[in-house]
Computed example of a mutant assay.
Amino acid sequence: MDDSSVARQPKRQARRVSMADVARLAGVSSQTVSRVSNGHPGVVMETRQQVLSAMAELGYRPNSAARALKWGEFRTLGVILFTLSTTGNVRTLEAISTSAAQHGYATTLLPVAAPTQDEVHGAFTRLGELAVDAFIVIMEVHLLDAATVSLPPNVQVVVADSNAGDRYSVVDTDQAGGSGVAVRHLLDLGHRTVWHLAGPEESFAAQRRADAWEATLLDAGCEVPPLVRGDWSAESGYRAGLALAEEPDCTAVFTANDQMALGLLRALHEKGKSVPRDVSVVGFDDIPEANSFLPPLTTVHQDFAEVGRLLVEGVLRQLHNDSPERGTTLVPTRLVERASTAPPPA
């Protein structure tokens, strides 16, 4: 046989690493490897690490199709969301991924280009083709609220950041409660009223916070200043701050998120306004950098980890119990007082 005929012969395919191979290397049973592979509890940490190390050394990859046939699920959750540009959505997504992993599930993310019925149904279809077991939808904009978009029937789904609790299972931060606490904090310091730098008009969370701001002022018998609108970005907070610095009666501002508060602080500083001596500022979110603002920002803390945990546990209950859930679960907020608030100037 000449060299050319040898070259034409097909190469032998490398044998796929099996579960039995992993079991032999790790010194455990194939059943133990299966339990580790599928994220099931009950495997001691030392044994789990032995199995994982053997998987890594051999390059073992579980067969998702076979696993789905055996267990009746792919152990993957699909996440649909409309933007990754906001801090809240990113931190919620991080919390979902972390909680899902703790339950032995992977996550598949699919951003939606436009908040329309066709885009939403297209996202469910594409995720279904990617073999996911259930869905979490981060719905920041007013879609389900206005019934302009509905979700496909007969799917396990939990929705974050929406007002659709009568039709779906919803998990959300207590937007109204947190905003009310922020405004009352400023009023209790002696401010005659509180201005509000709101998020974008199409945002459900922004609307909830703005409504609570106005209601709290009215309940206290205070004048309601004109609402100032931003887009969640620090740049929009800066532009709003330049305008608010020209308002002689503005001694307190409640901003709908910390990013806009950051821009607001810069604008007030450039305009010669001292925070909190001249103007007090409260944010919303309690991002990790809030304590490093100048001055450190008083803000409303959102428990994103708890939101993510409840979203995952809610959709897994539906998946395993095959029972649709309805209603809204609100995650409490709390005010974190720092150095950006004080009584108004004498």
Results as ranks from 00 to 15, higher is better:
residue 185 H to P: 03
residue 281 V to M: 01
residue 196 H to K: 02
residue 312 V to D: 04
residue 3 D to N: 11
residue 221 G to W: 04
residue 110 L to P: 07
residue 250 C to I: 09
residue 197 L to R: 00
residue 10 P to F: 01
residue 190 G to E: 04
residue 21 D to W: 05
residue 7 A to P: 07
residue 39 G to A: 12
residue 258 D to C: 08
residue 162 S to R: 09
residue 119 E to D: 15
residue 183 V to M: 00
residue 225 P to H: 07
residue 123 A to N: 03
residue 114 A to P: 06
residue 78 G to K: 00
residue 67 R to M: 15
residue 87 T to P: 13
residue 55 M to N: 07
residue 160 A to P: 03
residue 128 G to V: 08
residue 152 P to T: 07
residue 308 G to W: 01
residue 243 A to L: 12
residue 107 T to E: 10
residue 89 N to A: 10
residue 157 V to H: 00
residue 184 R to S: 04
residue 303 D to N: 04
residue 264 L to F: 10
residue 102 Q to S: 14
residue 91 R to W: 12
residue 26 A to T: 02
residue 243 A to I: 09
residue 312 V to G: 01
residue 200 P to C: 12
residue 216 T to W: 00
residue 88 G to A: 14
residue 195 W to R: 01
residue 258 D to Q: 13
residue 231 D to C: 08
residue 146 A to V: 15
residue 149 V to P: 03
residue 206 A to R: 01
residue 346 A to N: 12
residue 101 A to S: 15
residue 197 L to W: 02
residue 287 I to C: 09
residue 87 T to Q: 14
residue 322 D to G: 12
residue 248 P to V: 07
residue 175 Q to S: 11
residue 242 L to F: 05
residue 292 S to K: 08
residue 271 K to F: 09
residue 202 E to H: 14
residue 299 T to Y: 03
residue 265 L to Q: 08
residue 177 G to H: 01
residue 44 V to S: 15
residue 340 S to I: 03
residue 117 Q to P: 11
residue 216 T to V: 10
residue 66 A to I: 07
residue 266 R to Q: 13
residue 265 L to A: 03
residue 53 S to F: 09
residue 237 G to T: 06
residue 324 P to R: 05
residue 69 L to N: 11
residue 159 V to A: 03
residue 167 R to G: 10
residue 251 T to W: 00
residue 81 L to A: 10
residue 216 T to H: 02
residue 148 T to H: 13
residue 18 S to W: 01
residue 290 A to K: 09
residue 4 S to N: 14
residue 124 F to H: 10
residue 64 S to C: 06
residue 88 G to K: 12
residue 212 A to V: 05
residue 121 H to P: 02
